[in-house]
């Protein structure tokens, strides 16, 4: 009996080594250990043994069964591992083939720039406000100290709808609206971004363009000065055009500010050495700014004896062009999808 068992063990070992797949291994298990398996047969035959022999043989059979079970289990694991490896190998793909196309849309460079400007000023405590594009003469000009017939109206050739309505020529129209809307006459820190329109159209001027307007008004005792304006614009220019640029305030004239300045920045192309962009001057004019004119304060409900402040405005299109290296203004408005699709990643 003992020999029979040993022989069976050897045979099983040998077979296991030959077996290549899980199915065959399972068949072998059933053949040996199954309900009608060989080992089970042997156990059944124990009833013919003497009571003395039974425990001895029983022990022996159990030991062999345990051994065989371990053996088969191990073999199964190995086979499973091999099977997995084979499968993985079969599933190998060419990872250099192109990906499935997952298309993202894109944001227009002007709006990207506007969002950047808004975020900057919001971080400095400004409110972003909005105003109509189809504006009245009153808000676009008259309330900004530009009465009808004023010669400075020539600076901005306008698209009139009627003698009273026009497309706003400047976001400055929102200044008066903001001041008037603020019935409690609390301090103001606001910017407005948006479309503006002028009656000119050539290679460097689009009849439709974008501006940002800033307005700060506070009590006289807090003394908002030209130095504050300069500091604020320095932060703005550095954010938009880069560090290491300096500003130059050149006296100028806008009816809604007094004193008024045009603000030049070190040429961002040549760094101030002089080039074709800055016409050899080393400076590029980028902003109009000044201290809010007392008439503007007065006309819009703020007592110029008690309040003062500054205002500034600039074109956004050129900032966007600089930011992304766009070479021709017309790209901004033709909306060629080959252009648009380039703006599909984070800044």
């Amino acid at each position: 009996m003992k020999e029979k068992l040993e022989k069976m063990k050897e045979q099983v070992k040998q077979k296991v080594e030959e077996i290549k797949d899980l199915q065959a291994l399972n068949d072998l298990r059933v053949k040996i250990l199954g309900k009608k398996g060989e080992l089970t047969e042997i156990l059944r035959g124990m009833k013919d043994l003497s009571p003395e022999e039974r425990p001895v043989v029983g022990n022996l059979v159990n030991r062999v069964r345990d051994e065989l079970e371990v053996l088969l289990e191990q073999a199964e694991k190995e086979l499973q591992q091999k099977e997995l490896e084979r499968k993985l190998n079969e599933e190998k793909i060419d990872i250099t083939l192109p990906s499935s196309k997952i298309i993202r849309g894109s944001k227009h460079p002007i709006n990207r720039t506007i969002e950047q400007i808004q975020d900057l000023f919001v971080s400095m405590g400004y409110d972003v406000v909005d105003g109509p594009e189809l504006e009245t003469d009153e808000f676009c000009f008259e309330r900004l100290n530009l009465p009808k017939g004023h010669p400075a109206r020539d600076m901005q050739d306008s698209f009139y709808i009627t003698p009273e309505y026009l497309l706003r020529t400047q976001t400055s129209s929102v200044q008066a609206r903001t001041m008037l809307a603020n019935t409690e006459k609390t301090p103001i820190r606001m910017i407005c971004t948006g479309k503006t329109y002028r009656r000119e159209d050539d290679a460097t001027h689009s009849h439709q363009f974008n501006q940002v307007e800033g307005l700060v008004i506070d009590k006289k005792e807090r003394n908002v000065s030209l130095a504050d304006l300069k500091g604020t614009l320095e932060v703005f220019v550095k954010e938009m055009l880069g560090d290491n640029l300096s500003l130059r305030f050149r006296p100028s004239y806008f009816p809604f500010t007094e004193p008024s300045y045009e603000v030049d920045v070190t040429c961002f192309k040549c760094g101030g050495k002089g080039c074709s962009l800055c016409k050899q001057t080393g400076w590029i004019e980028i902003l109009g700014a000044g201290m809010v004119h007392p008439n503007v304060l007065e006309m819009n409900g703020y007592d110029p004896k008690q309040y003062g402040g500054f205002a500034f405005g600039t074109g956004i299109d050129r900032l966007a062009m600089f930011k992304y290296g766009i070479t021709d203004m017309r790209y901004l408005y033709t909306n060629d999808v080959r252009f648009l699709k380039q703006f599909d990643r984070m800044d």
Binding site: Q118, D119, F121, V122, S123, M124, G125, Y126, D127, V128, P187, R189, V216, D218, R222, V224, L226, A227, D228, K230, G231, T232, L233, E234, V235, L247, R248, F249, P251, E258, P259, S260, Y261
Partner: peptide, 27 residues
């Protein structure tokens, strides 16, 4: 004031930020 700034020159103005109460901006 503009005349004074204009003829005297504003090269030496030191930029600073308005000293106003802190407040959150909104958009």
């Amino acid at each position: 004031i503009e005349e004074v700034g204009r003829i005297y020159g504003l090269e030496n103005i030191q930029g600073k930020l308005p000293t106003v109460p802190m407040k959150q901006g909104s958009v």
